[in-house]
C-alpha cells in the first residue's frame, strides 16, 4: 500500500469528518430554522467529501476495506485531524469562528489540490471547492455580522477568535510523509499558503471590527494523532454502534 498517500488522504479527510460530526450535533438546536438548515447543509457537504476521500483511501488498503472501516474503526491516535475542528460548539460565535478559520484554510488547500498529479485527489478537490467556497462565504458573513453586530455579539465573537487563534497554525503543519508527496507533486505545499491565509483572515476580522490576537503561542498535535480531551468523547459517540455491536452490517 502507498502509505504516504493513504496518510495524506486521511489528513485532509479527517478534518471534514470531525467538523461534520461537530456540526451534526447542532441539528435542531440552532438560533433559527434557517441557520439550522444551512449548517446541516455544510455538515452534509463535508460528509460527502469524507466519503469520496475514504472510498479512495480504502481502495489503497485492499479490496475488502470500506469507507466505514476507516471512519469508525480507528483508534484515537490514528485520526489525524487538526485540533481546530474538534473544538466544541461552545456558542454560535465559536461555531462560526471555527468554521471561518477552517473554511479559509480549506478553500486555499482545495484550490491547490486541484492541481495535484494524483488525478483522483484533483477531481475530489474540483468538486468540493464549489461547496467550500460557499461555506467560506457563509461563515465569513457571519463573522462580520457577529463582530460588527451588538456589543454582546462582538464580545462573544472576539472571545471565540482569541481562543481559536491558537489552533490556526497547526493547519499548516507538515508531516514527514506529506513532505515526500510534495516533491512528487501530489500533496499541496502548505507552507506556501500560510502568509496569504493570515492575510485573508486578518482582512475579514478587521472588516468585522475585531482585534487580531497577538499571541504567538500555537497548539498542535492533532495531525500527529495527539488530540485534545474532546476527541475521546467525539469518538465514543461516533463509534458507539461499531464498538457495541462489532462486525455487523447496518
Amino acid at each position: 500500500m502507498n502509505k504516504e498517500l493513504y496518510n495524506y488522504i486521511l489528513s485532509i479527510a479527517d478534518n471534514c469528518l470531525i467538523l461534520g460530526q461537530r456540526l451534526g450535533e447542532l441539528c435542531g438546536h440552532g438560533p433559527t430554522l434557517e441557520t439550522d438548515i444551512a449548517l446541516t447543509n455544510i455538515s452534509l457537504d463535508l460528509f460527502g467529501q469524507v466519503r469520496s476521500y475514504y472510498q479512495y483511501a480504502a481502495k489503497l488498503v485492499d479490496d475488502k476495506t470500506t469507507e466505514d472501516d476507516i471512519a469508525f474503526l480507528r483508534n484515537e491516535r490514528e485520526y489525524v485531524n487538526a485540533l481546530l475542528v474538534e473544538q466544541p460548539n461552545t456558542d454560535f460565535a465559536f461555531i462560526m469562528g471555527r468554521q471561518f478559520l477552517f473554511d479559509a484554510f480549506h478553500l486555499m488547500l482545495l484550490s491547490e489540490l486541484q492541481k495535484s498529479h494524483d488525478v483522483t485527489l484533483a477531481a475530489i478537490a474540483s468538486k468540493s471547492i464549489k461547496e467550500v467556497s460557499y461555506h467560506y462565504r457563509f461563515s465569513s458573513d457571519w463573522v462580520r455580522r457577529l463582530g460588527d453586530g451588538t456589543p454582546e455579539s462582538k464580545e462573544r465573537m472576539q472571545a471565540a477568535i482569541n481562543d481559536l487563534w491558537a489552533y490556526t497554525e497547526e493547519l499548516f503543519y507538515q508531516t514527514a510523509s506529506e513532505k515526500l508527496l510534495i516533491e512528487k507533486g501530489i500533496a499541496v505545499d502548505l507552507s506556501q499558503l500560510k502568509a496569504s491565509y493570515y492575510q485573508n483572515i486578518t482582512d475579514v476580522l478587521e472588516e468585522s471590527t475585531l482585534t487580531i490576537p497577538d499571541s504567538k503561542w500555537f497548539k498542535k498535535g492533532g495531525k500527529e494523532g495527539i488530540h485534545s480531551e474532546h476527541m475521546g468523547y467525539i469518538l465514543s459517540d461516533m463509534q458507539f454502534m461499531q464498538r457495541a455491536y462489532p462486525n455487523m452490517k447496518w
Binding site: 460530526q21 441539528c27 460528509f47 466505514d68 461516533m238 454502534m241 461499531q242 455491536y245 455487523m248
Partner: peptide, 19 residues
C-alpha cells in the same frame, strides 16, 4: 442519533431527513 449513526451512508441520510 445523528452523531451515532452506524455508517456514513446512514449518517448522511439521517442528517438530510432531519434537515
Amino acid at each position: 442519533w445523528i452523531t451515532r449513526a452506524p455508517s456514513l451512508r446512514r449518517k448522511v441520510a439521517l442528517l438530510a431527513k432531519v434537515q
